[in-house]
Amino acid sequence: MAVGVLAAVLLAGCGDPDQKLRDNAAQTARTAASDVNTTRLVVEQLQAHRLWIQPARRMVDDAEKSLGTTADSFSTQQPSTEQSARLYEQVNSTLDDAVAAVTAVRIALGNSDLAAAERQLAALQLSGEDLDQVGELAK
């Protein structure tokens, strides 16, 4: 569904202020996708008993921090047209999903609750795909 809305936004036109926001959204999404995919890779390695919990915590902590900075930075953007506003909302909500999933993993690992972390794998996967879509909106 998210993809449908985004495609509509994309097809609706390429005004200049829209273009600027779209560039920013795409760049933001690619950076965010990196952290989401890192988290997913870490959880997968934990699940396969290939990684200790200490370094895993460290890596997820770093990913969460970096993702938080990226999301905050995008939310300070100023959408000036209606289309921009829609894209802005859409990207913000995608980022929120990503932050929620990564934070959930961080909390789970903090409590050494591996099962809870593994339950986030699907959400991470989905979030990563959504971000990839946004990432393709612009160069």
């Binding site: 890779l41 008993h49 990684l51």
Partner: peptide
């Protein structure tokens, strides 16, 4: 689509290949 920004990420490929010993 992962961009490297931490030393942990630099080590990850070895984890994927060899697990805990590799790490």
């Amino acid at each position: 689509g992962i961009q490297v920004g931490t030393l942990g990420q630099v080590a990850l490929p070895v984890v994927v290949a060899f697990g805990k010993i590799g790490l």
